[in-house]
Amino acid sequence: MIALVARQQLTTLHRQRTAVTVVGLFVAMTALAGVIGWSSTQTISRVYDQAVVLLAQTGTPAPANPIGIKPTLSLLSNMTVYLPLVGALLAVLLGHLVIADDRTSGVGRLLFSRRLSGPAYLAGKAAAVGAVLAVALTASLLVSVLALLIANGNLPTAADLGRLALFYALSLLYLSVFALVGMAAVLLTRKRSLALLSAMGVWLVVTFAVPQFTSGLRPTASLNPVSDPASATTAFFRATAHARPLSLSEQYKAASADLLQTGPAHAVTATLGHAVPLLLGAGLLALLVSLTVRRHDWSRSMAGE
């Protein structure tokens, strides 16, 4: 039954062209990240060349070229911003659509007139959303490899490919959290618009409000892959920093920085440790959605706007 629900949902997403739009947007944002990374690298090299000339005129020795010490994968550092912004919002939308469409069209009422359990229905829906996100992220992985090949002139090493694969696996976990948020919001609210705005409110809190509280990160600092370390000068932030493991977006960014080598190197256990809150978050949300779907009244249509 789970496979049947998943197959039906995938067919619907395919017919509505939602799946292809999501995959296309992921490919576009990965290509954009590659172009921006390449452009930044080229500009920094040219700035360095000009700086060397200027420093030579004043007799000052030039420091090492910052590009020379930047790891290969850091070219894709913008993906650590685009996935939590665009990717997470698309995941929210996917989660919202797969449940809300059934409520609006009355398909949910029809389905539950058959021998279908709530958790099986939910598992099918989650599998369909997971499949679309997995295809989108795999496409992103391929575009990333292509971008690195074009920018560096050679294929990434096996170790770099492993890091990239782990980064996209971590991203799938992060996006799954938001897809579940989108599903939970539909099941917990009566109106479709309220469901969408509530899920988006959660995304805003996770992406901007919590990092402000735990690390003093201003909202625009969250938009740049290279941000200055958070202030630890005030007692307030020294206290709130204890809650940082609960900040999912910061945990995702920290693990991503480790995997793409855009920040200081850390032990593997530390990187894995960042994934634990994401796993717990996804697990708790899956439990919440599972409990909600059991008690949900499918005879009530999402009639209101």
């Binding site: 954009l32 921006i36 452009s39 930044s40 500009t43 920094i44 700035v47 910052p66 913008n78 911003v81 912004l85 665009v86 625009t220 938009l223 740049n224 892959p225 290279v226 200055d228």
Partner: peptide, 17 residues
């Protein structure tokens, strides 16, 4: 988010900690 982010990350000064 996206347009300002692109402009911001194209700023070379922002690309090194």
């Amino acid at each position: 988010l996206i347009i300002p982010q692109i402009g911001d990350t194209l700023d070379a000064d922002n690309q090194v900690p």
